[in-house]
């Protein structure tokens, strides 16, 4: 009798479970069948009323039916919970938008300076700066260029107050200040802006940039200088870069020398960029002239040094393949949204 009753109830439960669609209804169903006053639970309670003999036979059967009923309920509840979770996750989901964020960029001159600075700092150099409004003393006289020296024609000067104050024509002025204010040994590089009285066109600007280097130690020579240049050129332009060294005149050095790089555009054949000669002039260098050292009170018997000055804009133009110097300081310089040459 009891077994039939529980079987009927389970059939009813099965039918109820088929029609239920949410967890709230499951609560009602729980109450109806499994709570203390639920119909299935009440049948369990009726077992107590049976004789011991009947209990032994009926009780395990009823218990089994009860377990089956509970399992049916739990299965359905789990299904609904999973379903519910899925619905929740879907409603809370977020999409990635496909807008590529804008990123900022360093100016190619800053990038190049940083690349060079990093290299020199790794070789134990300090970085120095100095004023752009400079005294004639530091821009020329301490660098072995007295007033009315023909070498001044190499650097047509923009004056603030002639003849004493000018806009520096070269970052060698930082060299002169370092020599005057610090005691050797020192190794410095000094990037900076310089000014010359030139008409602005595709290859010349009246505002441009130098990258100066200065080493004063007890013992050094041109081989050291060339070794540093070699590392620098390879770092900036790769291992296949071709460089030549030729004699050049700068009053602040003796001997004077300058590195030329084989033209990146024509590979030495000659083109408009290199004015047909196949080489691009990259700067000047040399062993510091004894007059320069002596003006700074440095004992030339104990100390020796070399200096170099690079036309930074040319280095940058060669590296970033910019053909018009005006781009570097003008409205034409833009940054690509995507930096890679090839989109990967």
């Amino acid at each position: 009798m009891l077994e039939n009753n529980i079987k009927n109830l389970i059939e009813n439960l099965k039918n109820n479970l088929l029609t239920i669609g949410n967890l709230d209804e499951m609560d009602g169903l729980w109450k109806k069948y499994f709570s203390n006053k639920g119909s299935i639970k009440l049948i369990l309670k009726e077992i107590k009323e049976l004789s011991l003999e009947n209990k032994k036979i009926i009780a395990p059967l009823i218990q089994q039916h009860y377990k089956n009923a509970l399992a049916l309920f739990k299965n359905k509840e789990d299904l609904l919970k999973t379903d519910n979770l899925c619905k929740n996750l879907e409603s809370q989901s977020e999409d990635l938008n496909y807008f590529t964020p804008k990123i900022g960029h360093l100016h190619p001159i800053s990038r190049t300076i940083r690349e060079m600075n990093n290299l020199f700092v790794s070789m134990g150099f300090s970085i120095m700066d100095g004023p752009e409004i400079e005294k004639d003393e530091y821009c020329f006289q301490r660098l072995n260029v007295p007033l009315d020296h023909p070498a001044r024609d190499m650097q047509d000067t923009i004056y603030i107050k002639e003849p004493d104050y000018l806009l520096r024509t070269q970052t060698s002025s930082i060299e002169a200040r370092t020599l005057a204010n610090y005691k050797p040994p020192f190794k410095i590089v000094s990037p900076g802006r310089v000014y010359r009285n030139e008409t602005v066109n595709k290859s010349n600007h009246f505002i441009f940039h130098h990258y100066q280097g200065l080493v004063v130690v007890e013992k050094t020579n041109l081989k050291d200088l060339f070794g540093i240049f070699n590392v620098l050129f390879q770092k900036m332009y790769g291992k296949d870069v071709v460089v030549r060294y030729r004699n050049k005149y700068y009053p602040e050095v003796e001997p004077g020398v300058g590195p030329d790089m084989q033209c990146f555009n024509c590979h030495g054949k000659g083109c408009s960029l290199c004015k047909g000669v196949g080489w691009i002039e990259m700067g000047g260098a040399g062993i510091i002239h004894p007059n320069v050292m002596e003006k700074a009170g440095i004992d030339t018997k104990k100390w020796m040094g070399f200096a170099f000055g690079l036309g930074l804009d040319r280095w940058v133009m060669a590296k970033y393949k910019i053909t018009d110097i005006r781009t570097l300081l003008g409205g034409n310089l833009g940054y690509k949204y995507y930096e890679n040459e090839n989109i990967i």
Binding site: V217, T220, K223
Partner: peptide, 28 residues
């Protein structure tokens, strides 16, 4: 010195040796 080196040839000075310059203080 410059006269001698320029005729002797700056290109005869090797550039493939990394210099071992002494360590100095950072004044940046």
């Amino acid at each position: 010195v410059e006269e001698i080196i320029r005729i002797y040839g700056f290109n005869r000075i090797p550039s493939n040796e990394i210099p071992k310059l002494e360590i100095v203080q950072d004044i940046t």
